[in-house]
Simulated assay, not measured.
Amino acid sequence: MWQAIDEHGQWQGEVWNQKENGSLYAIKLNISAVYDARQEISHYIGIMSDITQQKLDLASITKSAHIDSLTGLPNRLLFTDRLLQAVAQADRNKTFLAVCFLDLDHFKKINDVHGHQSGDAVLKEFAIRLDTAIRTGDTAARLGGDEFILLLLGLKNSAECATILKRITHMACQPIPLPANAIFPTASIGVAIYPTDATIPNNLVALADTAMYHAKALGGNHTIYHHTKIA
């Protein structure tokens, strides 16, 4: 900022400042140098406006565009962005990643018997458990309805993927208490591995989705890989 003022006589930009009570606020600031008769800087004039609410509104809009409103998990848009980044990371590190499509079994029955409010409660609790069970750097997202998707990074082999999924589903599928009684959720899971199953991210998601439907066809509560195992 001061370099720009020294070189050009003015600076304009946005800064975060701190109030006496410690709270932060954002300002749009314009600083201009004022010169005397000898063309030396005599003082500065600063004009500022508080843009804190604009920043908060923008953050809220950005969050709503990327976060599922019911569960607080990343939505499809944010998941896709993270998948693209993960593919580039896997290429750099010569590792594998897994896309895991999860669909809650018999969820329609939960809505029909217990009501949509209870169904939403089940989805929110299941989401919390997924997000708690994944490793740092992995992603759990909700695509809509009772469909969730996981992005597991830095895998060395299929056995590692299976171990991680077993731990995740064990934590996520514990009984969920409802006012009337408890729900015992299970999930059908389809898994696709990058780069052995597909090298295009959208294809990877599609293969995991197809594998999940095969798991559904077996009666649910199964995990199906499409089907290249990594050594």
Results as ranks from 00 to 15, higher is better:
183 I>D: 02
175 P>Q: 02
5 I>Q: 14
227 H>Q: 15
136 T>I: 08
56 L>N: 15
187 A>I: 10
5 I>D: 08
226 H>G: 04
216 K>L: 09
84 L>D: 11
193 I>H: 00
38 R>V: 01
127 A>Y: 15
167 R>Y: 08
28 K>A: 13
36 D>C: 04
142 R>M: 03
219 G>K: 01
198 A>V: 08
20 E>G: 05
223 T>D: 05
216 K>Y: 02
192 A>R: 08
174 Q>L: 13
160 E>P: 09
216 K>P: 02
102 L>T: 12
128 I>T: 13
165 L>W: 09
208 A>N: 11
143 L>M: 12
91 D>M: 04
114 H>M: 05
36 D>A: 01
206 A>N: 14
31 I>N: 10
94 K>Q: 15
134 I>Q: 07
123 L>M: 04
24 L>P: 07
76 R>G: 08
117 Q>N: 05
99 V>C: 05
171 M>P: 11
174 Q>V: 11
133 A>K: 03
37 A>L: 08
75 N>Y: 02
197 D>A: 06
57 D>A: 06
110 I>V: 15
77 L>V: 07
112 D>T: 03
131 D>E: 04
114 H>W: 09
39 Q>C: 12
86 A>L: 00
42 S>D: 11
1 M>L: 08
62 T>M: 13
143 L>F: 06
49 S>N: 13
165 L>S: 13
71 T>G: 11
154 G>M: 02
13 G>P: 01
203 N>E: 10
145 G>T: 02
59 A>V: 07
155 L>I: 02
163 T>S: 15
10 Q>F: 14
63 K>V: 07
13 G>R: 06
49 S>W: 11
163 T>I: 11
56 L>W: 13
204 L>H: 00
15 V>M: 05
108 K>I: 09
86 A>G: 04
148 F>S: 05
98 A>D: 05
230 I>H: 06
5 I>P: 09
229 K>A: 10
18 Q>W: 11
74 P>A: 03
60 S>Q: 14
102 L>P: 04
142 R>G: 06
184 F>H: 09
220 G>E: 05
97 L>R: 05
115 G>K: 05
103 D>I: 03
141 A>E: 01
194 Y>D: 00
7 E>S: 12
119 G>E: 12
90 A>V: 04
23 S>R: 15
205 V>R: 08
47 I>T: 11
183 I>F: 10
150 L>W: 07
56 L>S: 14
